[in-house]
């Protein structure tokens, strides 16, 4: 990598990002392996922040590791676990250690995770977090005090193109744009026509959109996600394609589907890039890229 993510976004290149998940514990071997595998194949690497409210090694620590190994990290930062002081101070730390990209998230509910009795903080929401970064960039903290040394980040957020209902989601999307979000990673998309409609709407705003690509590993997973995961719709033809795949071939089919989607998005310049989420299958990201012709 070695190139600053923001410059890449602004260059008009079709940007590709992926993500790595920190471990539960201090054994970093697998995460470091994934970082080494992906850091030169994608333009930036998200490090997830206690994803699904599961306590893990911190995203900040993962970002340092990406940086140390020559990659470009995107710090995922949720509002679930930290109050204003902790969020701001982590941003100061991130900046001094060379992290230049932050993805601002609300965070999953505490009740879905593995510390179900813990307090969900949510003192800020994702819109307020974006604005807080703006403030720190101006050299002020939320208490109105002057900083000795500011920060500068490329600010990202998420959007769910298939949200049902769409209207409240679009209001929030526009608030995030107004709050200074420069790029958006979307929830997983599988229906190109629906996504094109979303892009017709989103392209009126001065932001970069990276389509979310979640690797499908089986027809069962595809059905489960459609039925249970908010804002995910896998069209029936894709589910059929997966279920008609001979036994043992689902993963390869999933890779093919993901690659095909990325290639289609890139070919017609439908969006500004993709964010690949190969949850627990990070090792196949290079295969997805190959299937996409990247």
């Amino acid at each position: 990598m070695g190139v600053i993510f923001k410059d890449l976004l602004d260059s008009g290149k079709f940007v590709v990002t992926a993500e790595v998940a920190p471990p539960k514990g201090t054994d970093l071997e697998q995460m470091l392996h994934h970082i080494d595998l992906l850091k030169d194949r994608v333009d930036a690497l998200n490090v997830t922040d206690h994803q699904s409210s599961v306590m893990r090694f911190p995203s900040l620590g993962g970002c340092f590791a990406v940086k140390e190994r020559g990659g470009e990290p995107i710090l995922q930062m949720t509002c679930r676990d930290r109050n204003q002081i902790a969020l701001q101070s982590d941003l100061l730390l991130a900046y001094t250690r060379g992290v230049r990209n932050v993805l601002c998230l609300t965070g999953d509910a505490m009740t879905v995770g593995d510390h179900k009795q813990a307090q969900g903080i949510f003192e800020l929401d994702s819109v307020q977090l974006l604005r807080t970064i703006d403030l720190l960039e101006e050299g002020k903290d939320m208490g109105g005090n002057e900083l000795s040394g500011k920060v500068s980040f490329c600010k990202g957020a998420i959007v769910t193109p298939e949200a049902d209902p769409w209207e409240p989601q679009s209001c929030k999307f526009e608030k995030k744009v107004d709050a200074g979000a420069e790029f958006f990673q979307t929830q997983a998309i599988y229906d190109l026509d629906n996504f094109v409609k979303f892009m017709d709407y989103a392209s009126q705003f001065p932001v970069k959109i990276l389509a979310g690509i979640v690797l499908l590993t089986s027809a069962r997973m595809a059905k489960y996600m459609t039925d249970n995961v908010p804002g995910i719709f896998v069209p029936p033809n894709l589910i059929d394609e997966l279920s008609s795949t001979p036994k043992g071939g689902s993963l390869e089919k999933g890779i093919e589907i993901a690659g095909r989607m990325i290639a289609a998005l890139k070919k017609d310049s439908i969006c500004d890039g993709v964010h690949i989420m190969a949850i627990n299958r990070e090792e196949v990201v290079p295969d997805i890229l190959a299937a996409a012709g990247l």
């Binding site: 998230l105 509910a109 949510f122 049902d164 209902p165 989601q169 929030k172 908010p230 804002g231």
Partner: peptide
């Protein structure tokens, strides 16, 4: 709102219902 958000729904909302 389960999370007490002020500026709009989180990504967990689905078909008008709460994720939790």
């Amino acid at each position: 709102c389960h999370k007490g958000l002020l500026n709009g729904p989180c990504g967990g909302t689905n078909r008008g219902k709460c994720e939790v």
